[in-house]
Nucleic acid binder design. Structure first.
Lengths: 399, 399
DNA sequence: GGTTTATACTCGTGGCACGAGCATAAGGTG
DNA sequence: CACCTTATGCTCGTGCCACGAGTATAAACC
């Protein structure tokens, strides 16, 4: 609908501004001089571009702390009336949201427990949050970015087993404001957060794996996740790394999922499949240090996790692997077994310099931070900046 | 070395020219008017850009066949003295090479069998080919793109088991000419060819899998392969989809590789591991239709192949999967078993619209065509065009 | 207080795409 | 065969962007 006539040049003009804003985001608190160096910009261009972005209320300049000789430069920070993103996360028991500025800093955090876990009440609460932010920030609010523990296809929820949801249409959330809604899988977005500002920062290719009930994850290349057709990628738990004899609720056999979460622990311990595998896993982890059977079960699960990771490392050669959710305590509870299985699963030529497996840095905030990142990507795109500039035809002159 | 001062604008100026050349490559024989429509360019811009590219000897215009009313337009074709890529492929028994123009058409094909398979003689032959092309085409030759059945890391061969090579340094190949050398894995490049102009043309995400001795492959996103850290990705055969009891020569256990090639067939048939799994597989395939044991072995291997593919489809959600090498006849020999295993390995929600599994369109030429594509990517990059333009400061005026 | 250093500011230049108006080459029509 | 219709090419003035060279400035150093 928007791909009409020569939009080409209108957008292309913003290319350098996009890069500059991206640099500000990568290194919050960066100075104008440093940005110019990074982007190979002449000082004249830097002056002009920052002036433009200042007039457009995208950036502000503040005197930079003096470091040695030379004329002082200034720190580039988001403009106090610049564009904002509302990022939100829906989890099994609760929801959270925050408003983020161009540098990725968040504020105005809200959170709450679901009164009912049904889609209707949850969406109504979220809709009120969106409308509230829209009223509070008005045109400064440019996008809503939502993380859900769900299979997402073409911007819609296909299924969210942890919430017990089937297909859910979310377009109503932003119907009142007309804001763009960006929907993402929580594990995918947590991976984005790690690749941008977490343990995998700077990695060309990063693999993030998150164990909750089953395994989710994402391969992030150049900071962008591989989402596949319709955005349904990332179902790493359903690769047949496991015992072919075990059937998975997904319909396939031998899924990795079934080997690495609470259900697997229960199987190893000869117990019934737990109703809440997440809590059950925490319980078993808690007694693993003094209960030999629990320890063996945890070790088996940690090994299965590491073996699969090694296979993925063989195939994709990430620079780094990050672990989120229960994957962290699982490894921590059986580090020797994990490391042995990881090394044993790697091809010989990879063992000299195996991809490091690191704990996720964002912890439980990964999905929300990833939603912020993706939302900011959207509002700092060439097209979005062009629109922002057009909306404010005669910006307030700086006196 | 080239990242000096403001190279930024120098390169950015070529952005539209790059897109125009890419469009010509995507649709060979496209007219100027059609390109302008595709790229949302005004007719004035199209006139100017094509004039520029004509003066720079990148494109030629020829009257387009008249179609209905209206002023006739012209077909954009590579300039007869425009830039060229030398693409080459080194296989187990022989080598091939060809020279390609900007539209991807190849000519001047040369080929030969290895006199000796040792790196030295092979490289010497290739070096002569490169030097010959350099003498024949001079500055028109802009890059050499090489496909090898090898693990490639940071532009070097780490290991090429089918050739019996260890680490090999190839920089000598272009030492005389000073041309950029682009090295790629054959399976990866075959995947690129499929994603660009083959069975996966137009797919956002494509998975290409190639069975020869073991499995190679690539995930291609937006026409570009995921090569991972150092370019060592694509070792799909070493994901633990197989029997954990089987050790793989790579050092790991349960590798998919071991389940899907001639060694697996021999195991199913209770025979010794074949010295040449490729030829052996062809033999078994030949008698599978009338030899029940061979048929069962082929069916088992086809199932193992399909199960792994399903797992990869679950994880990555490609739009399409393409099969190269022996994967094609393996599936063809046991289509029912293949389809059953593929469907059975998919998550339920994927079964409604499973990613189609197609035979590769490029056949044995995939790697060479992929090398052409990657080479052309290189010489039509913004930086390369800027360099090409600088080299010819006063282009011959068109009279 | 002068020098050094790093950066900012100014301004003329060149390059690109746009858009509007005009030109042109074909088919179609009476 | 003259004229209309249609699709496209060509020209040129405009706006925008980044560059580069020269100049100005604010701090540290001596």
């Amino acid at each position: 609908m928007a791909s009409d006539r020569p939009e080409r040049a209108r957008n292309a003009r913003w290319s350098t501004a996009v890069d500059l804003l991206a640099q500000v985001r990568r290194e919050p608190g960066i100075t104008r001089a440093a940005v110019a160096r990074r982007l190979n910009l002449s000082t004249g261009s830097a002056t002009e571009i920052t002036a433009r972005l200042r007039d457009l209320r995208l950036l502000t300049e503040a005197p930079a702390p003096v470091r040695g000789r030379g004329r002082p430069t200034s720190v580039l920070t988001p403009h106090p009336s610049g564009p904002l993103v509302l990022a939100a996360e829906v989890r099994q028991e609760d929801w959270r949201c925050a408003v983020a500025t161009l540098d990725g800093r968040t504020g105005d955090v809200q959170a709450g427990r679901h009164v009912s876990r049904e889609p209707g009440p949850v969406l109504e609460t979220l809709g009120q949050v969106v409308d509230g932010a829209w009223r509070r920030y008005g045109e400064r609010l440019r996008a809503v970015s939502l993380a859900v523990a769900a299979t997402v296809c073409d911007g819609r929820i296909v299924q969210a087993s942890s919430l017990g949801w089937g297909p859910v249409d979310l377009t109503g959330l932003t119907a009142g404001s007309g804001l763009p809604l960006i929907l993402g899988n929580d594990a995918t977005l947590a991976g984005v957060a790690e690749a941008r500002t977490g343990s995998a920062a700077g990695a060309g290719t990063a693999l993030h794996l998150l164990v909750e009930v089953g395994i989710g994850g994402a391969l992030i290349v150049g900071g962008h996740p591989l989402t596949g057709a319709g955005g349904t990628g990332g179902e790493y738990g359903h690769m047949p790394f496991g015992d072919r004899g075990l059937r998975c609720p997904c319909g396939a056999r031998g899924c990795w999922d079934v080997e690495v979460d609470g259900r697997a622990l229960a199987r190893h311990l000869g117990e019934q499949p737990p109703a809440d595998p997440h809590t059950y896993t925490r319980q078993v982890l808690g007694r693993a240090s003094h209960d030999a059977a629990a320890g063996r079960a945890v070790a088996a699960v940690a090994s299965a996790l590491a073996t699969g990771i090694a296979g993925l490392v063989n195939a994709h050669a990430p620079d780094v692997v990050t672990l989120g959710g229960l994957a962290r305590p699982l490894r921590a509870a059986a580090p020797a077994e994990f490391d042995a299985a990881y090394a044993g699963g790697l091809m010989t030529f990879r063992r000299a310099r195996p991809a490091p497996v690191l704990d996720a840095a964002h912890g439980d905030d990964g999905a929300l931070h990833g939603a912020v990142a993706v939302g900011l990507d959207h509002i700092t795109s060439e097209a979005a900046l062009a629109t922002w500039a057009d909306r404010r035809p005669t910006p307030a002159p700086t006196v």
